[in-house]
Design a protein around this nucleic acid. Structure first.
Lengths: 172, 172
DNA sequence: TGTTAAATGCTATATTATAAATTCTGCTCT
DNA sequence: AGAGCAGAATTTATAATATAGCATTTAACA
């Protein structure tokens, strides 16, 4: 007899509705403040991205947007994504060609992403010490930083615990 | 009258032939030691990658391989790249979907890549302090690292100097 | 030398992303 | 209200990146 286990959706361990509505409220507020338009399409795409803490692919978003926006084409999604990235509302996860909601402050958009191979959720960390070590090192190298992509793949705390405490896992 | 300037190929500032032959010798040696085959195709692809210190695209490699290997198809290149990555002989640059030669020791493959927007060259740094800060921070988060992609975009020392000392630039 | 595993060849296709021209929409200025 | 404008969205086409799956060849070695 084999028992397969899947990770609990860690998202369920917090109040995800609250999490999303907070993110959306912040986004709406920031766009207002900046005088840029969080149009219905952009709003919807951002909501779709926030449905989980996993990084989501552009064409997956497209499929999910289509029922709501019959005319949606790749360009629809990519233009929305470009906007959201410009506004610092999402991160592009380079190593996955995917996108994830961003909750960093507008002034601290460059963060470290912890990407779990098991549950696929992406955790943002500001990691001050890492960033300052990085600044110091690049300065030594005479390199002027414009942007950073720091993506760490591995197993998150929750998934690690699952393998220890099987009670937290789900039997398929 | 307009004067356009291009960066010197920084590669020309060092003995690049030596640089390449060293890289190839190391690769040959490592593969020998590991009992894996650095076949003619893999060897050639690695050489093509080492032609510069820029990150190079898969289909660019394919175009350059074709004259030497008539049968070359996308899979030819991707299979060679997979092998070279597995052996730690090249890095995949996630934020560029491109590949660059790796000169880190076999035990220290995870490095920090400084990617210059101007000359496009990629510099590897081991950045011990950054890495240890990173280990510490991820440990705090309870995250177990499997792999890292740390990619910093900006302007390298040489290109920075060019904009200051125009004598080092080339008039087109 | 026959067997086998690895490497390559070959064809097709999936996935990710952009270009460029047009139309729509909402706003401002008169 | 209506002309003009700018940003947003649509539409069509295609570029760029990457993999799947099966056939054939090569090379290692028992």
């Amino acid at each position: 007899m084999t028992i397969n286990t899947i990770p609990l959706q860690h998202a369920l361990k917090h109040n995800h509705n609250e999490c999303v509505s907070e993110a959306m409220a912040t986004a709406e507020h920031l766009c207002m403040e900046r005088g840029v338009q969080l149009t219905p399409i952009r709003h919807k795409v951002l909501e779709l991205i926030w449905e989980s803490h996993k990084a989501v692919k552009a064409y997956e978003l497209l499929d999910r947007l289509k029922p709501l926006q019959k005319a949606a084409k790749p360009a629809t999604i990519y233009r929305a994504l470009d906007f959201l990235i410009d506004q610092g509302l999402i991160h592009r996860v380079e190593s996955l060609n995917a996108f994830v909601g961003c909750r960093c402050s507008s002034y601290q958009h460059e963060q470290l992403l912890l990407i779990c191979k098991h549950c696929e959720e992406v955790e943002e960390r500001s990691a001050k010490e890492v960033m300052s070590a990085l600044s110091e090192d690049t300065q030594k190298a005479g390199f002027t930083i414009h942007s950073k992509a720091i993506e760490i793949h591995g197993i998150c705390k929750n998934c690690q615990n699952l393998t220890i405490d099987q009670n937290q896992s789900v039997i398929l």
